[in-house]
């Protein structure tokens, strides 16, 4: 994570194909743009040191059945 490199169309096509998806070319362009944007945005979060705190709960404050 955090290399700053973007996936290209062929790499995205292959990743999708690996999961059984073959999608129209126009959509492949948007999927590529969108996944690269999301990767960039999430990678940026690595800069928040707090995210390295361990252990972390599954959900904040969740009081599941039988706990309350």
């Amino acid at each position: 994570m955090g290399t700053g490199l973007d996936l290209d169309l062929e790499q995205v096509r292959l990743l999708l194909k690996q999961q059984g998806y073959v999608i129209p070319e126009e959509e492949l362009v948007e999927v590529t743009a969108s996944v690269n944007a999301l990767i960039e945005g999430l990678t940026h979060l690595e800069g928040y040191g707090e995210l390295q705190n361990e252990p972390w709960p599954v959900l904040v404050g969740y009081l599941g059945g039988g706990h309350a």
Binding site: L15, V35, L38, W56
Partner: peptide
């Protein structure tokens, strides 16, 4: 379709990072 395809190939490490970030903002 497009959103789901993005979700299908988002690297697991980043999906996990999103979970951790959720806990922090929560």
């Amino acid at each position: 379709r497009v959103s789901s395809m993005v979700g299908a190939i988002l690297p697991a490490g980043l999906a996990n990072l999103a979970q951790r970030a959720r806990i922090v903002i929560g």
